Amino acid sequence: MISNAKIARINELAAKAKAGVITEEEKAEQQKLRQEYLK
Rank of each mutant, 00 (worst) to 15 (best):
I22A: 05
N11D: 08
E26R: 00
Q35P: 04
L38W: 09
A28H: 10
S3T: 12
A14M: 11
N11S: 08
E24C: 10
N11I: 15
I22P: 02
S3Y: 00
L13E: 03
Q31G: 07
A8C: 10
E26L: 01
Y37S: 10
Q30F: 15
E26H: 00
Q35E: 15
E29Y: 02
E25V: 08
E25N: 07
A15M: 10
A8I: 12
I2M: 13
E12I: 06
I2A: 09
G20N: 05
E29D: 03
A28Y: 09
E24N: 11
L38F: 07
K39V: 11
E25R: 07
A19L: 12
E29P: 00
Q35G: 11
E36A: 04
E12D: 07
K18Q: 08
I10E: 04
G20W: 00
S3W: 00
L33K: 03
A14H: 08
E25I: 08
I7V: 11
A17G: 05
K39E: 15
E29C: 05
E29K: 01
E24R: 08
E36L: 05
L33C: 02
E25P: 05
K32Q: 13
I2L: 11
S3A: 10
K32D: 07
K39F: 06
Y37T: 09
R34I: 15
E12H: 06
K6Y: 04
K27I: 13
R9K: 05
M1F: 11
K6V: 15
M1S: 13
K27V: 12
A8W: 00
A5L: 05
A14W: 07
E26Y: 00
A8M: 08
K6I: 15
K27M: 13
G20C: 07
K6Q: 12
K39I: 09
K32N: 08
E12G: 03
N11A: 13
R34C: 15
L38T: 09
A19I: 07
K27T: 07
E24A: 10
I2T: 10
A28R: 11
Y37F: 13
L13Q: 01
N11F: 10
Q35I: 10
A15T: 08
N4Q: 14
T23F: 00
R9W: 02
I2Q: 09
I22W: 03
T23S: 08
A14G: 05
L13T: 01
Q31D: 14
A5K: 09
E29L: 04
S3R: 06
V21D: 10
Q31F: 04
E12S: 04
Q35M: 12
T23V: 01
A15Q: 11
K27H: 06
V21T: 14
L13I: 04
R34P: 02
A15E: 12
T23M: 02
E36F: 01
A5E: 14
L33P: 00
L38D: 15
T23Y: 00
E24M: 08
A8E: 13
E36T: 02
E12K: 04
L33E: 02
M1I: 14
A17E: 15
Q35W: 10
L13K: 01
M1Y: 07
L13C: 03
Q31P: 01
K32P: 00
L13D: 01
E29H: 01
A5M: 05
L38K: 07
I10F: 11
A17N: 04
Q31K: 12
